[in-house]
Design a protein around this nucleic acid. Structure first.
Lengths: 233, 233
DNA sequence: TCAAAAGTGTTGTTGATACACCCATGA
DNA sequence: TCATGGGTGTATCAACAACACTTTTGA
């Protein structure tokens, strides 16, 4: 069985990432403009071919390193496989799509042919890349609600109101700063650093600064319902 | 770029599914015993090679059709790509893993070399298949809480207490029948069929029968927190 | 009339929203 | 001292867990 697994038509595997960042209060995705046919001039996701010696996550991290400093990429996760036989013209290519997140306080050096695009107004994209971007957005939105992924969008130190605007931009609706702080604090995700930020030009009380307790995504609101019975004292 | 994408080492793509079913109050997975080396005699997931003309979901459905009647497979969803270069010996094979669900009232004809195995006591599995099974279990458990996937584990008509034992088996802890009914009803997932089941040998009040409102998984508890503001009246 | 199983009512808790009010700073 | 933004306190609400109680059946 396994022995004739390679006797069929060749099949290539590529990895693609929708790298998201909140820039000027808007959720953006990093796209590059294709310089070759097919789909010359359209915008597409960074990525490329899977090499023989790497798994898909290693591969996407390597390929993104050319666009974004790896240190700045705070989170990477698999989204799904896109495998329609005709998803790209020519020989078949199956793609594993990723979500990548960059905190809002960095402005990576990016190549000439790449740009940050507003997710709410995507340009004409190549192949099935628009579907991938939308999938990334939806994944981010749900995970913001029940995990600590927020840390990957935020600077290492931030005021609650700065965090509020990040969440608002990513989720697409106004989030209340008061309750955001309470929710994250109750879940033990937010720690005060003790420092404060100078108040802005218009005055106002200086904001206390916070940071997330740890890196690495984990679930903070594990069971919406059907909770397992709590441990008896 | 794209033009030399096929000049590298060949790469095969396989699809694998962890097909789960609750059988005699236990969550089980369908495994087949390998008849060939490598890993001869170990238990592995059904699946096989991706053909040139099909996408991964079409492929896994086709390959499962040999084991389980497709009509009986109420739900199929992608889990993740498993791509470690050495995940199988020999030429490289990347796998797309799936979760499949079969309702508890069917007992599919399965081939000689396949068996249902208790998830709590997995036998020695081939390759990375154990990790895939565990991933499937975890996905099912979380989705039971915030979606209507339950329909894919349940018969088309059932009593609340039957549903309770399905949920208990899948989740791994006791679920209260009273509250299960209330939660699902509040979310508009459960409709009474009007019929009742005859009471058992030991007597007792006959149970009212229910069914899920629809097929197709969708999220029923969309936002654990950070809910978008409700529409004003 | 009793045991068994199903179904209902009630109470309490938790986690979240909304909003009024208080605090600290720059001009 | 006032405008501006940050922070706290509190009322309220919704969803769920727990459990006692009632109903309906078979023997």
């Amino acid at each position: 069985m396994r022995s004739h697994i390679n006797t069929h038509a060749p099949l290539a595997h590529e990895v693609l990432a929708a790298v998201l960042q909140v820039r000027s209060d808007t959720l953006k995705v990093l796209l590059w403009r294709r310089a070759l046919d097919p789909h010359l001039g359209r915008w597409s996701l960074p990525g490329g071919r899977l090499r023989p010696d790497e798994d898909v996550e290693t591969s996407i991290r390597r390929q993104l390193a050319e666009k974004v400093d790896v240190r700045q990429l705070k989170h990477v996760e698999q989204l799904a496989v896109f495998s329609a036989p005709d998803r790209v013209p020519g020989p078949r290519v199956v793609a594993t799509a990723f979500l990548g997140l960059v905190p809002s306080d960095v402005d990576p050096e990016i190549p000439e042919d790449t740009e940050w695009h507003d997710l709410a107004a995507l340009p004409r994209t190549a192949f099935d890349h628009e579907a991938i971007v939308l999938r990334a957005r939806d994944r981010l939105r749900s995970k913001l609600c029940y995990t600590n992924v927020g840390f990957a969008l935020a600077p290492s130190e931030f005021s609650v109101s700065a965090l509020r605007s990040l969440y608002s931009a990513a989720l697409g609706y106004r989030v209340d700063a008061t309750n955001l702080q309470r929710v994250l604090s109750r879940r033990g995700q937010l720690v005060p650093t003790g420092r404060t930020s100078p108040s802005g030009r218009a005055g106002g009380r200086p904001a206390a600064l916070f940071s997330f307790v740890g890196e690495g995504v984990h679930i903070t609101d594990p069971f919406a319902v059907f909770r397992p019975p709590p441990k008896r004292h």
